[in-house]
Design a protein around this nucleic acid. Structure first.
Lengths: 138, 138
DNA sequence: CCTAGGTGGATGTATATACATCTATCGTGG
DNA sequence: CCACGATAGATGTATATACATCCACCTAGG
């Protein structure tokens, strides 16, 4: 099951990234911008929870996104925390990229069918919840 | 969809690797040994096709597996090709690891149900086939 | 106030993965 | 046989990702 999911994730990533290439955003980076757009200002740890990802893994990816000016961070009352949010430039980038992303999804959705698409999203989220303790749907 | 699959793949990988840790095999490495066990002697490019993975990405992972003595390679008639196969040590390692792997899968299968499990495998393979040109079910 | 244990991230290290590019080799038309 | 375009991997570079460990900071008990 793990191998099947990893394999499909590779295939899907390749499919999405081919379309996203002209935008200069990697699939993972777009995902983070989308998550921040929905979540508002969140700590790095909380973002890791949302993405079912080790929060320390985010340190490097976020460094890239900050360098490019798409993500801003500040200290909260708890000085250990990094509160992350989409910067103005990040919001603009996300807005410009969304049509491309919609296009890929539409092409895939056409192959899977509306019902298959929704079913698959539901199932993958269910599996994530089953094996990850912390949750918070993407 | 890409983000959902990547997210679930991360969660599943973490779930499997926690169980596999005592064996010293990473999930990806186990997958390659299993693939070689089923496929017999194959070229690197063919293995990449089976795993829906860029064949040049395999160069590094295979180097690790060869260093550990689990995978053997030889030149074929076509001197550009690397023909890969499970070494004797690799077969032994795979055999020792399989019970652990079975255990994880059983635990997950118990949560998903036999029917849900098979359904999910079928769907993921279907998606892979839809977005990847080359195939060959895992 | 002060200390002890806990928590949020940063950093070191290892693996996973892709793509562009390079090299060796292959097969074919001349 | 030979030059040329095609193919299999190797290599350079960048990102994605995890875990162990470290440091700073927090919180609660004394």
């Amino acid at each position: 099951m793990c191998a099947s999911f990893r394999r499909t994730a590779r295939a899907l990533t390749s499919f999405y990234e081919e379309a996203l290439r002209p935008t200069g955003l990697r699939a993972t980076q777009l995902t983070i911008l989308q998550a921040l757009s929905r979540a508002g200002e969140v700590s790095q740890g909380r973002l890791g929870g949302i993405l079912a990802m080790d929060s320390t893994s985010l340190t490097r990816t976020l460094a890239i996104l900050r360098r490019r000016g798409w993500v801003a961070e500040r200290r909260g009352k708890d000085l250990r925390e990094r509160l992350l949010r989409l910067s103005r430039g990040g919001a603009a980038k996300l807005k410009r990229t969304t049509p491309v992303w919609d296009g890929v999804q539409a092409r895939l959705s056409a192959k899977l069918g509306e019902r298959g698409w929704k079913n698959l999203l539901r199932l993958t989220n269910q599996v994530t919840d089953l094996v990850a303790d912390k949750g918070g749907a993407l």
